[in-house]
């Protein structure tokens, strides 16, 4: 059974349809990149998968014991976070909230999960630091650790390398790849097609509708991909 399956999904803002009749399945262990131009409905689709926005019609079902609030999410950074006084530890621990229900305080078991993910992403040395003092790459690591506290199965990333320098970008991609090898399913919205082709196994090309969904190698040969890459191929 698929981890996530979308069937005839329609999503809209007011009367503007941004996701039109989209169907696809994501299997356990996949590394899927959602690509497409601005306004092609990539981020909206992601919001649908996360339950942040209700679809107009169609359905999203979760298999393999995955629940909607057990998805690790790496959102785009907001203005609020830029000068937010929070220690790295506080941010990572807040990923455990979905295990809490209505109970108010964290337990030792949850602290242990946070600790484990801090070690996994080697951010133990900046634990006491304030989130606002970190570099862009470090901030993304912290948010990744938080996302891992919420899930062991599925990570959704919304343009995670925006604003990172090339070194930090390569590091982050490496880390995501490593997590995928360890069995975490990855779904990533990305502008960076070259990196998507390099890292992902599957590509979902959105332009309101699904233009392509299949293995990355196959996508690379398609005319769609060549057009999307544009100048790179003619140069």
């Amino acid at each position: 059974m698929a981890l996530i399956s979308c069937k005839n999904l329609w999503m809209a803002y007011e009367n503007q349809v941004v996701v039109e009749d989209v169907s696809f399945e994501i299997q356990k262990g996949d590394y899927v990149c959602i690509v497409g131009e601005n306004g092609s409905g990539k981020s909206t689709l992601l919001k649908g998968l996360l339950g942040l926005k209700t679809p107009k019609s169609g359905e999203i079902t979760y298999g393999e014991g995955l629940k909607q609030d057990m998805i690790g999410y790496l959102p785009q950074q907001t203005v609020v976070q830029k000068d937010f006084p929070a220690s790295v530890w506080e941010v990572v621990l807040s990923g455990c909230l979905n295990r809490r229900g209505w109970k108010p305080f964290y337990t030792a078991a949850e602290r242990k999960i946070a600790q484990k993910n801090i070690e996994k992403l080697s951010i133990g040395n900046i634990l006491k630091k304030s989130y606002r003092e970190l570099s862009g790459g470090q901030q993304q690591r912290v948010l990744l650790a938080r996302a891992l506290c919420a899930t062991e199965k599925l990570l959704l990333l919304d343009e995670p390398v925006t604003g990172l320098d090339p070194l930090a970008t390569a590091e982050l991609y490496g880390m995501i790849k490593q997590l995928n090898r360890e069995g975490v399913t990855i779904v990533m919205v990305s502008h960076d097609l070259n990196c998507a082709l390099h890292n992902a196994d599957k590509i979902l090309h959105m332009d309101t509708q699904v233009r392509f969904f299949g293995p990355a190698a196959e996508y690379e040969k398609s005319p769609l991909c060549r057009r999307f890459l544009g100048g790179d191929f003619h140069a």
């Binding site: 996360l50 999410y73 959102p75 979905n98």
Partner: peptide, 11 residues
């Protein structure tokens, strides 16, 4: 800190 993440994790 992060309303989108909180909402996605069921808060």
């Amino acid at each position: 800190f992060d309303e989108a993440f909180a909402q996605a994790t069921g808060v």
